[in-house]
């Protein structure tokens, strides 16, 4: 399997009046060709910032990518010039955003917005771009696309707008599609439509996907591999079946336990994770999950565990082995 993207030690910080927000704290991963990687975490854990950094879309200042590299086709995306980055972004690496209501320009027609990337990156003429736009809209399941290409975003529903965003993202046949919570703003039946569509397009086009979400349910049916993020760190990364079937980090275990499930037995009390995630301005010296962890030992307070391999393709950042250890509180 070929690796299309290698991220090494990516670190992003925001320099604010209150202090330095350590949003992403050195994450490393590989993305293989045609693979879907899910990045799961709660709000503020740095999952969006981590991919925005990859795309160099972090507002600077206050943000700054303070370290790390991201190798794509032999070049480090963190080092290339803005012009070179612009030819990658939207072309070989495309992104779709969470909120289909605000990520389209309300005063431009759908056709203009989807066609823009085609003219810019593929060198198409206006009429070629329009023709291709109609094909793309048909591909993402927009009925009577030839008529709707001249409509404005407000004439589309939320689910339809997200389809337009996907058409836009796929317009230049990207090798990597980054999806930042693309279904969070949508209803569950519409979410099912979108997930279904992305799966279908992935099988047809074969792009690699990074799917960011807070919903452990969505990635279970979609991802090949899942990484769990907490306070800017990857705390666990594994194949999707291992992560759900054999979670090894206390945070992952807690997250899975706190979900009410459609298929759970009745009367089960939810296992909540007490407390709150740490303040990213004042990260603790040791493990970021220390304060909320049920398995913590003294070492966790002073030393932050690195990601280490605990089983084939299964990395965990934890000093203890939850398969043998007993909860310490």
């Amino acid at each position: 399997m070929t690796t299309v993207l290698e991220v090494r030690g990516l670190k992003t910080q925001f320099f604010t009046q209150d202090g330095v927000v350590q949003a992403v704290n050195g994450i490393s991963y590989d993305l293989n060709e045609g693979e879907t990687l899910g990045i799961v975490g709660e709000s503020g854990c740095g999952k969006s910032v981590s991919v925005m950094s990859l795309m160099r879309l972090i507002p600077m200042p206050p943000g700054k990518i303070v370290g790390g590299e991201a190798l794509f086709e032999g070049v480090d995306l963190m080092k290339i010039s803005d012009d070179e980055m612009r030819s990658v972004r939207g072309n070989k690496i495309a992104m779709i955003f969470q909120d289909p209501m605000t990520s389209l320009n309300p005063v431009l027609t759908i056709g203009r917005q989807v066609g823009e990337a085609l003219e810019l990156h593929m060198g198409m003429s206006k009429s070629e771009a329009r023709q291709r736009t109609i094909e793309l809209l048909e591909m993402v399941g927009i009925p009577s696309a030839a008529d709707r290409v001249d409509d404005y975003p407000h004439q589309f529903s939320g689910g339809m707008r997200q389809r337009v965003m996907i058409a836009m993202g796929l317009s230049c046949n990207p090798q990597i599609l980054i999806a930042d919570e693309p279904t969070t703003a949508l209803d569950v039946t519409i979410q099912a439509q979108i997930v279904d569509l992305v799966k279908k397009l992935r099988d047809e086009i074969g792009m690699a996907i990074i799917w960011i979400t807070h919903d452990l349910g969505v990635v279970a049916g979609l991802a090949d591999r899942v990484a769990v993020m907490y306070a800017g760190f990857f705390v666990e990364e594994a194949g999707v079946k291992d992560l759900y079937g054999d979670p090894r980090h206390p945070y992952t275990i807690g997250l899975l336990g706190s979900l009410p499930r459609l298929d759970a037995e009745r009367g089960r009390r939810l296992v909540s994770i007490e407390g709150l995630p740490p303040d990213l301005i004042a990260l603790p010296e040791g493990c970021p999950f220390y304060a909320r962890c049920n398995y913590r030992i003294d070492r966790c307070e002073t030393e932050n565990p690195p990601l280490r391999l605990v089983a084939p393709n299964h990395r965990v950042a934890c000093w203890i082995d939850v398969t043998t250890a007993q909860p310490t509180r």
Partner: peptide, 12 residues
């Protein structure tokens, strides 16, 4: 509606 709800279990 029920069939659209994702279940956090890849095997299911």
């Amino acid at each position: 509606l029920l069939s659209a709800v994702p279940i956090p279990d890849p095997v299911i």
